[in-house]
Nucleic acid binder design. Structure first.
Lengths: 147, 147
DNA sequence: TATTGTTATACTCTATAACTATA
DNA sequence: TATAGTTATAGAGTATAACAATA
Protein backbone atom coordinates (compact mmCIF):
# COMPACT_ATOMS: atom_id res chain seq x y z
CA UNK A 1 0.00 0.00 0.00
CA UNK A 2 1.53 3.23 -1.19
CA UNK A 3 -0.22 5.44 1.33
CA UNK A 4 1.49 3.69 4.21
CA UNK A 5 4.82 4.62 2.63
CA UNK A 6 3.58 8.18 2.38
CA UNK A 7 2.53 8.28 5.99
CA UNK A 8 5.78 6.69 7.05
CA UNK A 9 7.75 9.24 5.03
CA UNK A 10 5.83 12.08 6.60
CA UNK A 11 6.53 10.82 10.10
CA UNK A 12 10.22 10.34 9.37
CA UNK A 13 10.46 13.78 7.83
CA UNK A 14 8.88 15.39 10.85
CA UNK A 15 10.51 13.45 13.67
CA UNK A 16 14.05 12.78 12.49
CA UNK A 17 14.98 16.48 12.36
CA UNK A 18 13.69 16.92 15.91
CA UNK A 19 15.85 14.08 17.16
CA UNK A 20 18.80 15.32 15.18
CA UNK A 21 18.49 18.74 16.67
CA UNK A 22 18.82 17.34 20.18
CA UNK A 23 21.71 15.09 19.18
CA UNK A 24 23.54 18.04 17.68
CA UNK A 25 23.05 20.28 20.69
CA UNK A 26 24.25 17.56 23.05
CA UNK A 27 27.29 16.93 20.93
CA UNK A 28 28.16 20.57 21.10
CA UNK A 29 27.52 20.95 24.78
CA UNK A 30 29.26 17.96 26.27
CA UNK A 31 31.19 16.54 23.42
CA UNK A 32 33.59 18.88 21.79
CA UNK A 33 32.56 22.51 21.84
CA UNK A 34 35.86 23.49 20.31
CA UNK A 35 35.14 21.57 17.11
CA UNK A 36 32.89 22.63 14.24
CA UNK A 37 30.39 20.13 12.91
CA UNK A 38 32.41 19.40 9.76
CA UNK A 39 35.53 18.95 11.87
CA UNK A 40 33.68 16.52 14.03
CA UNK A 41 32.38 14.59 11.06
CA UNK A 42 35.94 14.46 9.77
CA UNK A 43 37.15 12.88 13.00
CA UNK A 44 34.37 10.35 12.68
CA UNK A 45 35.29 9.51 9.11
CA UNK A 46 38.97 9.18 9.96
CA UNK A 47 38.20 6.88 12.85
CA UNK A 48 36.61 4.51 10.36
CA UNK A 49 39.03 5.11 7.49
CA UNK A 50 42.50 5.20 8.97
CA UNK A 51 45.04 6.74 6.63
CA UNK A 52 42.48 8.24 4.26
CA UNK A 53 43.72 10.89 1.85
CA UNK A 54 42.66 14.52 1.81
CA UNK A 55 40.59 13.95 -1.34
CA UNK A 56 38.77 11.02 0.20
CA UNK A 57 37.78 12.96 3.28
CA UNK A 58 36.83 15.99 1.23
CA UNK A 59 34.51 13.92 -0.92
CA UNK A 60 32.84 12.34 2.08
CA UNK A 61 32.36 15.58 3.96
CA UNK A 62 31.38 17.47 0.85
CA UNK A 63 34.06 20.15 0.82
CA UNK A 64 36.41 21.36 -1.90
CA UNK A 65 40.05 20.47 -1.48
CA UNK A 66 41.30 23.88 -0.33
CA UNK A 67 38.56 24.05 2.29
CA UNK A 68 39.32 20.57 3.52
CA UNK A 69 43.01 21.40 3.58
CA UNK A 70 42.26 24.33 5.88
CA UNK A 71 39.95 22.26 8.05
CA UNK A 72 42.62 19.60 8.49
CA UNK A 73 45.13 22.31 9.32
CA UNK A 74 42.91 23.18 12.25
CA UNK A 75 42.75 19.58 13.44
CA UNK A 76 46.50 19.06 13.06
CA UNK A 77 47.40 22.32 14.81
CA UNK A 78 45.32 21.37 17.80
CA UNK A 79 46.62 17.81 17.84
CA UNK A 80 43.43 15.98 16.88
CA UNK A 81 44.92 14.47 13.74
CA UNK A 82 48.23 13.77 12.03
CA UNK A 83 49.04 14.51 8.40
CA UNK A 84 51.91 12.64 6.73
CA UNK A 85 52.95 12.29 3.11
CA UNK A 86 52.32 8.78 1.90
CA UNK A 87 55.50 6.76 1.23
CA UNK A 88 53.98 5.08 -1.86
CA UNK A 89 52.76 8.22 -3.57
CA UNK A 90 54.37 11.34 -2.24
CA UNK A 91 51.55 13.52 -3.57
CA UNK A 92 49.04 11.94 -1.23
CA UNK A 93 48.42 12.88 2.38
CA UNK A 94 47.85 10.11 4.89
CA UNK A 95 45.50 11.26 7.62
CA UNK A 96 45.10 9.58 10.99
CA UNK A 97 43.67 10.50 14.36
CA UNK A 98 45.85 11.16 17.35
CA UNK A 99 45.03 9.63 20.71
CA UNK A 100 43.43 12.95 21.59
CA UNK A 101 41.28 12.85 18.47
CA UNK A 102 40.09 9.35 19.28
CA UNK A 103 39.41 10.22 22.90
CA UNK A 104 37.41 13.30 21.93
CA UNK A 105 35.30 11.30 19.55
CA UNK A 106 34.68 8.60 22.14
CA UNK A 107 33.74 10.97 24.92
CA UNK A 108 31.40 13.09 22.80
CA UNK A 109 29.73 9.98 21.57
CA UNK A 110 29.40 8.53 25.01
CA UNK A 111 27.99 11.71 26.54
CA UNK A 112 25.35 11.96 23.83
CA UNK A 113 24.47 8.31 24.06
CA UNK A 114 24.03 8.51 27.81
CA UNK A 115 21.79 11.52 27.44
CA UNK A 116 19.67 9.79 24.82
CA UNK A 117 19.42 6.67 26.97
CA UNK A 118 18.04 8.71 29.84
CA UNK A 119 15.43 10.29 27.64
CA UNK A 120 14.46 6.96 26.12
CA UNK A 121 14.11 5.52 29.59
CA UNK A 122 10.91 7.52 29.91
CA UNK A 123 9.28 5.28 27.30
CA UNK A 124 7.93 1.83 27.82
CA UNK A 125 10.10 -1.19 27.19
CA UNK A 126 7.86 -2.06 24.26
CA UNK A 127 8.37 1.36 22.68
CA UNK A 128 12.13 1.03 23.00
CA UNK A 129 12.01 -2.37 21.36
CA UNK A 130 9.96 -0.87 18.53
CA UNK A 131 12.48 1.92 18.08
CA UNK A 132 15.34 -0.53 17.89
CA UNK A 133 13.52 -2.52 15.22
CA UNK A 134 12.73 0.65 13.29
CA UNK A 135 16.34 1.79 13.33
CA UNK A 136 17.48 -1.60 12.14
CA UNK A 137 15.05 -1.38 9.26
CA UNK A 138 16.09 2.14 8.32
CA UNK A 139 19.82 1.62 8.57
CA UNK A 140 20.48 -0.38 5.38
CA UNK A 141 18.35 1.93 3.24
CA UNK A 142 20.21 5.03 4.27
CA UNK A 143 23.62 3.51 4.70
CA UNK A 144 24.16 2.99 0.99
CA UNK A 145 23.77 6.66 0.23
CA UNK A 146 26.03 7.84 3.02
CA UNK A 147 29.13 5.97 1.77
CA UNK B 1 16.00 -2.68 31.85
CA UNK B 2 18.64 -0.04 31.50
CA UNK B 3 20.68 -1.87 28.87
CA UNK B 4 17.79 -1.79 26.43
CA UNK B 5 17.77 1.99 26.74
CA UNK B 6 21.49 1.95 26.05
CA UNK B 7 21.10 -0.20 22.99
CA UNK B 8 18.21 1.91 21.80
CA UNK B 9 20.26 5.08 22.28
CA UNK B 10 23.16 3.59 20.34
CA UNK B 11 20.90 2.69 17.42
CA UNK B 12 19.30 6.11 17.36
CA UNK B 13 22.67 7.80 17.54
CA UNK B 14 23.97 5.81 14.60
CA UNK B 15 20.94 5.75 12.33
CA UNK B 16 19.32 9.16 12.77
CA UNK B 17 22.33 11.06 11.39
CA UNK B 18 22.34 8.79 8.34
CA UNK B 19 18.69 9.52 7.64
CA UNK B 20 19.18 13.21 8.31
CA UNK B 21 22.01 13.36 5.86
CA UNK B 22 19.79 12.06 3.07
CA UNK B 23 16.94 14.37 4.05
CA UNK B 24 19.27 17.35 3.96
CA UNK B 25 20.73 16.51 0.58
CA UNK B 26 17.27 16.03 -0.92
CA UNK B 27 16.08 19.30 0.50
CA UNK B 28 18.98 21.04 -1.11
CA UNK B 29 18.69 19.32 -4.43
CA UNK B 30 14.99 19.54 -5.17
CA UNK B 31 13.68 21.83 -2.55
CA UNK B 32 15.27 25.21 -2.47
CA UNK B 33 18.90 25.30 -3.51
CA UNK B 34 18.87 29.08 -3.26
CA UNK B 35 18.20 29.00 0.48
CA UNK B 36 20.65 28.29 3.28
CA UNK B 37 19.68 25.79 5.95
CA UNK B 38 19.01 28.49 8.57
CA UNK B 39 16.92 30.41 6.05
CA UNK B 40 14.92 27.31 5.35
CA UNK B 41 14.39 26.62 9.04
CA UNK B 42 13.23 30.21 9.38
CA UNK B 43 10.59 29.73 6.69
CA UNK B 44 9.47 26.62 8.52
CA UNK B 45 9.19 28.45 11.83
CA UNK B 46 7.32 31.36 10.28
CA UNK B 47 4.87 29.01 8.62
CA UNK B 48 3.93 27.78 12.08
CA UNK B 49 4.23 31.11 13.88
CA UNK B 50 2.65 33.73 11.67
CA UNK B 51 3.61 37.26 12.66
CA UNK B 52 6.48 36.21 14.90
CA UNK B 53 8.95 38.91 15.88
CA UNK B 54 12.61 39.01 14.95
CA UNK B 55 13.62 38.10 18.50
CA UNK B 56 11.33 35.10 18.56
CA UNK B 57 12.71 33.69 15.34
CA UNK B 58 16.27 34.43 16.42
CA UNK B 59 15.80 32.50 19.62
CA UNK B 60 14.30 29.51 17.87
CA UNK B 61 16.93 29.36 15.16
CA UNK B 62 19.73 30.09 17.59
CA UNK B 63 21.13 33.27 16.05
CA UNK B 64 21.94 36.65 17.54
CA UNK B 65 19.67 39.53 16.54
CA UNK B 66 22.00 41.20 14.03
CA UNK B 67 22.57 37.87 12.28
CA UNK B 68 18.89 37.14 12.14
CA UNK B 69 18.22 40.66 10.91
CA UNK B 70 20.60 40.03 8.01
CA UNK B 71 19.10 36.61 7.31
CA UNK B 72 15.62 38.10 7.16
CA UNK B 73 16.91 40.84 4.86
CA UNK B 74 17.84 38.07 2.45
CA UNK B 75 14.39 36.50 2.65
CA UNK B 76 12.61 39.82 2.23
CA UNK B 77 14.76 40.97 -0.67
CA UNK B 78 13.99 37.80 -2.56
CA UNK B 79 10.32 37.92 -1.70
CA UNK B 80 10.10 34.88 0.56
CA UNK B 81 8.92 36.89 3.57
CA UNK B 82 7.46 40.24 4.55
CA UNK B 83 8.66 42.44 7.40
CA UNK B 84 6.31 45.04 8.85
CA UNK B 85 6.45 47.13 11.99
CA UNK B 86 3.83 46.00 14.44
CA UNK B 87 0.98 48.51 14.95
CA UNK B 88 0.79 47.78 18.70
CA UNK B 89 4.45 48.19 19.47
CA UNK B 90 6.32 50.03 16.79
CA UNK B 91 9.64 48.59 17.93
CA UNK B 92 8.64 45.06 17.00
CA UNK B 93 8.84 43.52 13.55
CA UNK B 94 5.99 41.33 12.38
CA UNK B 95 7.26 38.61 10.08
CA UNK B 96 5.12 36.62 7.70
CA UNK B 97 5.69 34.41 4.68
CA UNK B 98 4.78 35.52 1.20
CA UNK B 99 2.93 33.19 -1.11
CA UNK B 100 6.29 32.40 -2.66
CA UNK B 101 7.74 31.52 0.74
CA UNK B 102 4.86 29.19 1.48
CA UNK B 103 5.05 27.58 -1.93
CA UNK B 104 8.79 27.00 -1.62
CA UNK B 105 8.35 25.36 1.73
CA UNK B 106 5.56 23.13 0.45
CA UNK B 107 7.38 22.01 -2.66
CA UNK B 108 10.64 21.26 -0.88
CA UNK B 109 8.78 19.31 1.70
CA UNK B 110 6.80 17.41 -0.85
CA UNK B 111 9.81 16.54 -2.97
CA UNK B 112 11.66 15.17 0.02
CA UNK B 113 8.66 13.29 1.28
CA UNK B 114 8.11 11.66 -2.08
CA UNK B 115 11.73 10.63 -2.24
CA UNK B 116 11.58 9.14 1.25
CA UNK B 117 8.37 7.30 0.44
CA UNK B 118 10.03 5.65 -2.55
CA UNK B 119 12.93 4.50 -0.45
CA UNK B 120 10.65 3.23 2.30
CA UNK B 121 8.67 1.34 -0.29
CA UNK B 122 11.55 -1.11 -0.48
CA UNK B 123 10.79 -2.28 3.04
CA UNK B 124 8.05 -4.65 4.09
CA UNK B 125 4.71 -3.30 5.17
CA UNK B 126 5.44 -4.56 8.68
CA UNK B 127 8.70 -2.61 8.79
CA UNK B 128 6.95 0.56 7.72
CA UNK B 129 4.34 0.09 10.42
CA UNK B 130 7.13 -0.38 12.97
CA UNK B 131 8.82 2.81 11.80
CA UNK B 132 5.59 4.78 12.13
CA UNK B 133 5.13 3.51 15.67
CA UNK B 134 8.73 4.33 16.53
CA UNK B 135 8.41 7.88 15.23
CA UNK B 136 5.23 8.37 17.20
CA UNK B 137 7.01 7.24 20.33
CA UNK B 138 10.02 9.48 19.71
CA UNK B 139 8.11 12.59 18.77
CA UNK B 140 6.85 13.71 22.20
CA UNK B 141 10.23 13.17 23.86
CA UNK B 142 12.06 15.34 21.40
CA UNK B 143 9.36 17.85 20.69
CA UNK B 144 9.58 19.47 24.12
CA UNK B 145 13.21 20.38 23.61
CA UNK B 146 12.69 21.81 20.16
CA UNK B 147 10.25 24.52 21.27
C1' DT C 1 50.30 15.50 -19.01
C1' DA C 2 47.46 14.20 -15.10
C1' DT C 3 46.89 14.05 -10.16
C1' DT C 4 47.27 15.64 -5.27
C1' DG C 5 47.42 19.11 -2.41
C1' DT C 6 48.53 24.24 -1.03
C1' DT C 7 48.50 29.34 -1.43
C1' DA C 8 46.08 33.64 -2.68
C1' DT C 9 41.93 35.86 -2.64
C1' DA C 10 37.01 36.86 -2.20
C1' DC C 11 32.34 36.00 -0.45
C1' DT C 12 28.94 34.43 2.94
C1' DC C 13 27.57 33.81 7.54
C1' DT C 14 28.05 34.70 12.09
C1' DA C 15 29.24 37.48 16.31
C1' DT C 16 30.09 41.75 19.38
C1' DA C 17 29.78 46.70 19.98
C1' DA C 18 27.64 50.91 19.14
C1' DC C 19 23.61 53.15 17.71
C1' DT C 20 18.40 54.56 16.68
C1' DA C 21 13.66 54.43 17.64
C1' DT C 22 10.03 53.31 20.64
C1' DA C 23 8.02 52.12 25.14
C1' DT D 1 15.72 53.43 31.59
C1' DA D 2 14.60 49.25 29.11
C1' DT D 3 13.48 46.88 24.82
C1' DA D 4 13.49 45.77 19.62
C1' DG D 5 15.96 46.08 15.90
C1' DT D 6 19.78 48.01 12.63
C1' DT D 7 24.43 49.50 11.28
C1' DA D 8 29.48 48.98 11.56
C1' DT D 9 33.03 45.93 11.82
C1' DA D 10 35.68 41.67 12.43
C1' DG D 11 36.41 36.55 12.48
C1' DA D 12 35.27 31.88 10.88
C1' DG D 13 34.40 28.86 6.94
C1' DT D 14 33.79 28.13 2.29
C1' DA D 15 34.71 28.58 -2.85
C1' DT D 16 37.42 29.47 -7.31
C1' DA D 17 41.80 30.36 -9.54
C1' DA D 18 46.58 29.87 -9.81
C1' DC D 19 50.45 27.33 -8.35
C1' DA D 20 54.01 23.46 -6.78
C1' DA D 21 55.27 18.84 -6.36
C1' DT D 22 54.91 14.21 -7.78
C1' DA D 23 53.44 10.45 -10.89
Amino acid sequence: MQSISEQCAREVLEVVPLVMRVIRSQFRKYGAPELSVPQFRTLHFLSQHRGASLSEVAEYIGLMLPSMSALIDGLVTRNFAVRRTSPNDRRRMTLTLTERGQATLRSARKATQTYLAEELNRLTQADRATIIKAMQALRPIFTEKAT
